[in-house]
Design a protein around this nucleic acid. Structure first.
Length: 814
RNA sequence: GCCGGGAUGAUGGAAUUGGUAGACGUAGCGGACUUAAAAUCCGCUUCUCCGCAAGGGGAGUGCCGGUUCAAGUCCGGCUCCCGGCACCA
């Protein structure tokens, strides 16, 4: 009896859609928002992409059967560079390429039987969607969270555009087929002020108990909160004050120089009368030509500015250097140099023969300043520090900060590593920034009523040349000022696609709303996301951005929640031959042909059974073989016995064999239900496999056998929905299992009334006794001591004690 | 450097949180069915020692040590691997 997956799968896919089984109940009583990260349409999807979707689908199908109104939508993150690069290569319009990819990929998802509510599909490159992306920009602008500034930014020479910090990996472009070394350029760009939310983004991580610890830790590191002191160093013979940030105010007596970043805007003013002006300019110019990586890897160097600053704690004069190991964007872009207690400062001081003044000694022991090889960076006891001598570093930090604060030389300060989010991109295929520049009125936001600012379609040249291709489209750029109607120009840049993806989860809630991105009513119905599923690679990008957007919308009164997702699950990747599955590596398994040959349910089992879902899995032919056998064996067994299937077993088990099977059945219901709640799909399938093996072994064709078959097909439905529904149908039902309530188990038959007690002597297993569950401790002990194998080890020995773990084991200690 | 996570048979992986290590699958071996093969069904498979056998002993979850009647699981110290951040002052 051969299982004809092709016919069966098509039939049920059609049935599900025609009967609206994937359609969301728009008035949920008990809502469950099950969301997988949407996708970039870079071609047809392959099995590597599908793991995510299969996991989401299992959850959706399970939750529906346990009484939830499930929202399970999908969509496409459709703007972005690959489409544009394709356009440059082969001349097809990015829109056409993207929409084609979406069409074929949607088809593949349907072939796998993923239960998306297709009526809610969203595509970010369509004006209906991106008008709201633009609206989000304007909201940020109105709330003072979008601003334009001239700044040093990450420039990708490959993509010919700027990138956000989150898109620079080890000094290189994040795009896997670019990876160019990032350069620094000073450009006038739009930023989102995510730093205003740094503290809340950090603090609220505590609320996210349903998020993996790893992701929270990564976000914490990324936000990088650092508490310390701002210290003001007045400049000698000048009104300029240099402010530095330090976490080690206790080392202030050891400051022997100050370093300022070459890009620091204070610098020009500082050196305007200095005789060392030219040398400084040369140094600044040199370092501006170095890439981020080059600067990080070279030896620390700098140049004296000819300027001296005054240490506010003791009035000492100290030289000011320009040094490009100082980051302009962190703190104030000026640092105090304490060579004795900071490794970088130590190297710098050695190179330029600056004094190394020891002011902290270890809590036990001494430091010999003459023979130091490196800085002493640990906390210790303050020395050579005047009235502060003898304080511990912890006390010293407090005391010095307090001292300076009282005298107006600074005070407590907090710094974050996270930087404002640069969202301008000098590329075509994105949502245009809805801003107009007017000579008279300056920066003018496009009024809401004029949205969307349409991306022009008739563009001839996509090739990036350092500015947006839109700058060359006169019909687009030239407009009139919304304020004064004078001729004006549009911003030619488009937005980072991560802006589009920061709010997409809201559009699903109300995808056809023409007047709002989402009504508050719909937001209240569905938010927060109950389960979000996606890749770990988004930990410090998208997963921070969408939290940021949620908080801004909450503050503006558009949402009632300030965190988007209560639970997050990060799935592992799909590998083949040891490498991540991808089209470009040539190891991808395309969906269409695989499903044609083996079936969607085989694909689903292969993915789910190979490894726990959070771990990387290797796609192997052996895995496919196993999944195939699993499905065939179930089909055969149930079809051969289809007349025996019964929905409940009203009889009580009469013999041990029946009881054993009935217990197995109940245990399986419990195990599978529990595993489904905990993302343990591999062990859930293993439990089903055990039940299957037991059913094969069971020779009686009685009610318990028939019930076992019934339970089997029921529990299968989240994993292999086509097979399950087909069996359900063939055993006399006219509906889909999707609309059947999930099974309960009979609590009276969860375990045998007999138990197996493990017999140990000194912790070593020596035997077992099979005994009634009501047996008391004394009875068991005496049986254990009488056991032949136990006696072999206890005879002629003195028994010290006997440990009895109820229902489990007995350990005789000799 | 800092912060996470991990290491279990030939192999993917189980193990109710301290209580029979190796569930389930794959591969391999053997058996049944078959003229034969495939498929299917049924068994065996951590290493090692004693035994013709039934059976019995010993060791074993990266390494070393500890706690405990009992450790893959807890504690201390390492080794290696993977991931994140990294000139953050």
């Amino acid at each position: 009896m051969q299982y004809d997956h092709q016919t069966v799968e098509k039939k049920w896919q059609k049935y599900w859609v025609e009967n609206g089984l994937f359609t969301t109940n728009s008035n949920p009583k008990k809502k469950y928002y099950d969301l997988v990260m949407f996708a970039y349409p870079s071609g047809d999807i392959h099995m590597g992409h599908c793991k995510n979707y299969v996991i989401g689908d299992v959850i959706a199908r399970f939750k529906r059967r346990t009484g939830f109104d499930v929202l399970h939508p999908f969509g496409w993150d459709a703007f972005g560079l690959p489409a544009e690069n394709r356009a440059i290569e082969i001349g097809v319009h990015p829109r056409e390429w993207t929409l084609n990819n979406i069409t074929v990929s949607d088809e593949s998802l349907k072939l796998l039987g993923i239960s998306y509510d297709w009526e809610r599909e969203i595509i970010t490159c369509l004006p209906d969607y991106y008008r709201w992306t633009q609206w989000m920009f304007l909201l940020m602008y109105k709330r003072g969270l979008a601003y334009k500034k001239e700044a040093y930014v990450n420039w990708c020479p490959g993509c010919q555009t700027v990138l956000a910090n989150e898109q620079v990996i080890d000094g290189h472009c994040y795009r896997s087929n670019c990876k160019s070394p990032i350069e620094r350029r000073k450009l006038n760009q739009w930023f989102f002020k995510i730093t205003d939310y740094a503290e809340r983004l950090l603090r609220d991580l505590e609320k996210l108990s349903g998020w993996p610890e790893r992701v929270k830790q990564m976000q914490k590191n990324w936000i990088g909160k650092s508490e310390g002191t701002n210290i003001v160093f007045p400049v000698k013979n000048s009104d300029i004050k240099l402010e530095v940030f330090t976490t080690r105010a206790d080392t202030i007596f050891g400051v022997t120089f100050i370093s300022i970043a070459p890009e620091n805007p204070l610098l020009d003013h500082l050196i305007k009368d200095s005789p060392y002006k030219d040398a400084v300019h040369t140094y600044v110019s040199d370092s501006s030509h170095k890439s981020v990586v080059e600067r990080a890897e070279k030896e620390k160097d700098g140049v004296f500015t000819g300027i001296y600053a005054i240490n506010p704690i003791n009035g000492c004069e100290i030289p000011v250097f320009v040094a490009d190991y100082v980051l302009v964007e962190y703190g104030s872009g000026v640092v105090m140099g304490v060579p004795a207690h900071d490794s970088r400062d130590f190297q710098f001081a050695r190179k330029y023969n600056l004094p190394i003044q020891v002011v902290i000694k270890p809590k036990s022991g001494e430091i010999d300043p003459k023979h130091m090889n490196d800085a002493f960076v640990d906390y210790g006891i303050m020395i050579n520090s005047g009235e502060f001598n003898g304080l511990t570093s912890e006390q010293g930090i407090e005391a010095v900060t307090e001292f300076l604060h009282k005298r107006g030389f600074g005070g407590r300060a907090v710094n974050y590593k996270i930087k404002d989010w640069l969202i301008s991109r000098q590329r075509y295929w994105g949502a245009p920034i809805p801003i107009i520049y007017c000579e008279k009125c300056g920066i003018v936001p496009v009024p809401d009523k004029d949205l969307p600012v349409l991306l022009p379609e008739n563009i001839k040249d996509y090739v990036p040349r350092g500015k947006s291709p839109l700058a060359a489209v006169d019909e687009f750029v030239n407009t009139t000022c919304p304020h004064c109607s004078a001729p004006a120009t549009r911003d030619p840049d488009t937005m980072d696609t991560f802006v589009c993806s920061s709010w997409y989860f809201l559009r699903y809630l109300d995808p056809h709303n023409k007047s709002e991105f989402c009504s508050l009513e719909n937001a209240r119905k569905w938010l927060p996301i109950d389960q979000y599923i996606g890749g770990i690679e988004h930990a410090t990008g998208h997963l921070i951005y969408f939290r940021f957007f949620t908080k801004v919308l909450y503050d503006a009164g558009f949402l009632h929640v300030d965190e988007p997702a209560t639970n997050l699950f990060t799935q592992g990747m799909v590998l083949r031959n040891g490498e991540v599955m991808s089209k470009s590596k040539g190891n991808a398994v395309p969906v269409g042909p695989f499903v044609e040959k083996n079936g969607a349910d085989v694909a689903r089992i292969t993915i789910l059974f190979a490894a726990p879902p959070e771990r990387d899995m290797e796609w192997s032919d052996e895995g496919v073989t196993g999944a195939q056998r699993f499905i065939e064996r179930i089909y055969r067994l149930i079809m051969e016995n289809k007349n025996l299937v019964i929905k409940n077993c009203s009889v009580q088990p009469e013999n041990d064999m029946q009881k054993k099977l009935y217990i197995r059945i109940n245990q399986t219901v419990a195990r599978v239900s529990n595993d489904l709640e905990n993302f343990k799909f591999n062990t859930a399938i293993a439990a089903l496999w055990e039940l299957l093996n037991d059913l094969y072994q069971y020779k009686e064709r009685d009610a318990f056998f028939g019930y076992g078959l019934y339970v089997m097909m029921n529990l299968l439905s989240p994993f292999t929905p086509h097979l399950a529904d087909e069996l359900w149908f063939r055993t006399g039902n006219t509906n889909s299992l999707m609309t059947e309530k999930w099974l309960d188990y009979d609590p009276h038959y969860m375990s045998d009334d007999r138990m197996v007690i493990v017999l140990q002597v000194n912790g070593k297993v020596r035997g077992h006794i099979d005994i009634s569950r009501d047996a008391d401790e004394e009875q068991i002990k005496s049986l254990a001591l009488a056991d032949e194998r136990v006696r072999r080890h206890t005879d002629n020995k003195q028994i010290k004690k006997i440990i009895y773990v109820p229902g489990k084991l007995i350990n005789v200690v000799i």
